Structure formats: C-alpha cells, structure tokens
Simulated scan of single mutants.
Amino acid sequence: MRILVAMSGGVDSSVVAGLLAEQGHEVVGATLQLYDHGAAAKKKGACCAGQDIHDARDVADRLGIPHYVLDREQVFRREVIGDFADTYARGETPIPCIRCNQTVKFRDLVALARDLGCEALATGHYARRVEGADGAELHRAADPARDQSYFLAATTREQLGFARFPLGGYPDKAAVRAVAARLGLAVADKPDSQDICFVPEGRYDSLVAKLRPDAVAPGEVVHADGRVLGSHAGIARYTVGQGRGLGNASWDGDERLYVAGVDAGRRRVVLAPRGALESAEATLGEVNWLVDPPDAPRRCTVKLRAREVPRDAVVAWDADAGLARVTLDVPGIVAPGQACVMYDEDRVLGGGFLRVAGTVDRARAAA
C-alpha cells in the first residue's frame, strides 16, 4: 500500500514509519507545524514544532522516504488553542488533544493522504483498529498504561476506516523503543511528550490570560451553601474536582473542600466537600458514534477522564436533541468540557463532551 505516516518527530511515529517501510509499503512522511518554531525549540517534550520537525526529517532521510512539512499554525491556533482558551472562559475544562486529533491531525492529514494517492493514514497512537462485520472498529491498546483510545473517540467512522495504528498491539513502550534501536533511529531514546504541547512550562493560565483576559479577572470563592470563603485571581485557574491551589478556602473547619463548579457569568468558584461533588448523571454534546446510535438505553462502561478506570453506566441517545444521557452505576465527578468515552469491553462505541456539571448535593455540602 501507499501509506501516509503522521510523523511528529517522536519515537512512536518514527517506529511506525520504519515498520511500514520494512514491510514493503510505499511510505510518505508528513509533519504538521502547529506553532512557533522558536518557542517550541526551548521546550523539552514538545511535538510538531522546533527540533521535532528536524528529528522527523532525519528519520525520513534514514528510512529513505519522502517527507513533507505542512504549515497548520493558523488552523491550530483557531481550532485548538482558541478553543482551549474559550473553554476555560466558559468555566469548563478543555481537552486539547482530542480537538487536535479531531481537526488538524485526522481531518487535514486524511485529506492530504487522499490528495497524494495514499490508501491509508498511519499514526503512532496506542490503539487498535479491528476489522469487524460492519467495518473498522476502534479498540483499546494492548498496553492499558499507554492506551490512547480515549483521545481518538472523536475520529469519524470514515476516518477510522482509513486509519492504521501499528503500535496498538505492542505490550509496552520498551518494546517500541527496542524496534527503534533495531532500525537505527536516532530518536530511540528520545523522551516522551509531556503536558500540553503548546503551553510553555505548563503555565496554561498565562496563555489563557493573553487570549481571554476575562477568564483571569478576580472574583469570589464561595461554599456551595452560599457562604463567601474568599477571592480568586481568575476562573481559568480552576476546574471541577480540583483540591489544590485553593489557599485559605481549602478547608471548612476540619473538612477538605474541592471545586464543585465554576460560574463563569458571576466569576464565582464554588467549593464543596468531595462527596457532594459526585453525580450519577451526565449529559454529552457533540457526540460521535462509532457504532449505530442505540435506539434504546444501552449498558456499557464509560470513562469521564483519560486515566480513570472505566465505570459501569447506561447511555440513552436523544436523537432529537443530539445529546446522550449517561446514568452512572456509581456516582463520579463530572467536569464540563472533558470527554466521556463509551466502551463495550475493549471496543469504543463513541464519545462526546460533558455539557452539564454534576449537581452539587447542597444538603450534603451543608452537613
């Protein structure tokens, strides 16, 4: 096959390119330039800019494959970085890796692959694409510690049919690095990407302040029962479930408090005891189904965060409203803006973005 490989400059995508070339495929490498070269060159563990582009080109040269660099800075700034800041300004918690996969990576790279006459797009994601009776299915990776199926839940069925994930069956990252060493790739020992790639030194609030100054305007910190506990320096610094960085408002007597909600309209951060944050219900918008939407409530498991263990739930699809209603067997913390991904064992059924925060149990909060 002629295959386009998304090469970020890291070990994973480099191994994918090497393996496919070794198998006899006609491999074409493509790297997205997503943000400023200069800023990225100073940040270790970044991707898609600076030194990483040079690393990707060096790997392509080593493998003897053509390599293209695509400037997608403006699109990335608008659809990923802009969405990141807007989400915080709404009092929600963004998940930029999903937005990036959903837009510049799969949408734009699939289009490029087709323009180049490629039959598939391969990436270094840790997930498995399985051919099922009704077409391609997305499954969790063999290594649960590195599984990235959660971040691919917004991939459309058409994109999934075109995609390949050669690393999904590998037992761990050490095995992938061993392949890189065998292939003689200079990136074999390169560190993994860390944190959010476009946020220098992890200071996301500084980035949000530049794009949405209203999100770092001061306001009140209040208890769920209405008491004013103090003040804050911007809602962008808080997310549902957060227990750190609350200063003197961290405790109510001898009880620890957590962020239960962010009221962007009134610039209020609402705190409550942890147990009062938990909700058994959630609503999902922008739902992407990788199966036919269920016409009746369906039992499955869901992940409300990337690194949590899937929890039992029932999902009901409201086609008229375009929303999925999730009922959890065991209540959990629902953070608006984050993704909720639905699974049937290892298979991804679909996913969406959490739209409604868990209702704070005011009786428990005041107890």
Rank of each mutant, 00 (worst) to 15 (best):
R237E: 04
G202Q: 08
L277S: 02
A357M: 13
V228N: 06
A366E: 15
G82W: 14
L34Q: 01
V16H: 00
H139Y: 08
H139N: 10
V110M: 05
L4S: 00
S149C: 02
C47G: 11
A282C: 06
I98Y: 12
E158C: 14
G64R: 08
A17M: 01
V326G: 01
P144K: 08
R182H: 07
R212G: 02
A133M: 04
A181E: 08
E255G: 02
K210Q: 13
E220P: 14
M7L: 08
D195N: 13
F165N: 13
A154T: 14
G265H: 11
E119P: 08
P94A: 11
D36A: 01
R146N: 04
D58N: 08
R203M: 08
R114I: 13
G219S: 02
A186Q: 10
G247R: 15
G29C: 02
R146D: 03
T87D: 11
D346C: 07
V309K: 09
R146L: 09
D195Q: 15
G358I: 00
V176A: 05
A113R: 06
R307T: 12
V216G: 11
L271F: 13
R140Q: 12
G38P: 08
H139P: 05
Q338P: 00
V334L: 07
L328I: 02
V59F: 06
P336C: 05
H223Y: 10
A122E: 05
R107V: 14
A367E: 15
D108V: 06
E220W: 08
P297N: 09
E137K: 02
M1S: 11
S250C: 08
D86H: 05
T31Y: 00
L328C: 01
E158K: 14
G337A: 04
L207R: 03
A224I: 04
G275H: 00
E345H: 11
H67K: 05
A339Y: 03
T156M: 03
A319S: 03
H139W: 15
E281A: 09
L63I: 10
A111F: 08
G29N: 03
P331N: 01
R311A: 10
G91W: 10
G45I: 09
G184F: 04
Y35T: 05
R2I: 00
K105M: 07
V69P: 05
A141F: 11
S8K: 03
R114D: 10
A209W: 02
A215V: 15
P273L: 02
C300L: 04
D195W: 09
L63V: 11
G337E: 09
G253K: 01
G117C: 09
L246D: 00
G184R: 08
A224K: 05
A365I: 03
D252T: 04
Q51H: 14
P191W: 05
M342Y: 08
Y126N: 15
V199W: 12
R299V: 00
L290S: 01
D320L: 06
L183S: 13
